[in-house]
Amino acid sequence: MSEKRFELNKNLAQMLKGGVIMDVTTPEQAKIAEAAGACAVMALERIPADIRAAGGVSRMSDPKMIKGIQEAVSIPVMAKCRIGHFAEAQILQAIEIDYIDESEVLSPADDKYHIDKTQFDVPFVCGAKDIGEALRRINEGASMIRTKGEPGTGDIVQAVRHMRMMYSEIRRIGSMAQDELFDTAKQLQVPYELVKYVHEYKKLPVVNFAAGGVATPADAALMMQLGAEGVFVGSGIFKSGNPEKRAAAIVKAVTNFTDAKILAELSEDLGEAMVGINEQEIELLMAERGK
């Protein structure tokens, strides 16, 4: 990836800001998501809640299914590949996907190395629990970051933990003396230049979204107020009673995330939310995949 291409890929993430990216499994769901105001869709065969329920190895989706979704909508289409599975990423690039999510939701293909994303022209988004993971992924070529949260649970606690951790570390680095930055770079196992950027600008060098466990307009507003620049919603929409209405409400909640009066109206009569699972009740913590 040339430096200019990396800029263009970061730029696309900038255009997604203030928006909601929705998981969809069929062209019909993709159309519902687009009509509800999604700024992009994530095409995958099974949403995280079903992946969790089914167990077993979870892989990249069938390219034919992804192409069907690309044809169904005019907004950007993203798709997931397994952590470290650069061949899956090559396939997604070949079908001109707009963004690849190297995702812990799928079974990792490599327990040591992430994909060298600098070798690709298409952009990558990666999950991160803290600033170290985020900067390591950016150094590998990711042009967008999201919290890992805990996918497929409808439980927001992990996304909150990851976002708070991210900003607490950004504030800490922001207030450091110049000479402390070198040691921080060493501790985080990332280049000094990335730490220096965070120190100077008090933010990540790329756009940062919330993901994992968002189920209600209030969840989305919470993440935005905690500093997210936009929101991914996975199982929360199509595992709920009224996907159209819930999707549209979450989109509006992200635009007016500080206006409690609007949020109250949006939260009314949404039907049943997805059935959540508490983090103590789950055996598989996807967020622990890929550090």
Partner: peptide
Amino acid sequence: PGGESTVQGKLMREL
């Protein structure tokens, strides 16, 4: 601004 015209167009009407 830039963004998705479908999203901005929809929100503009609904708001």
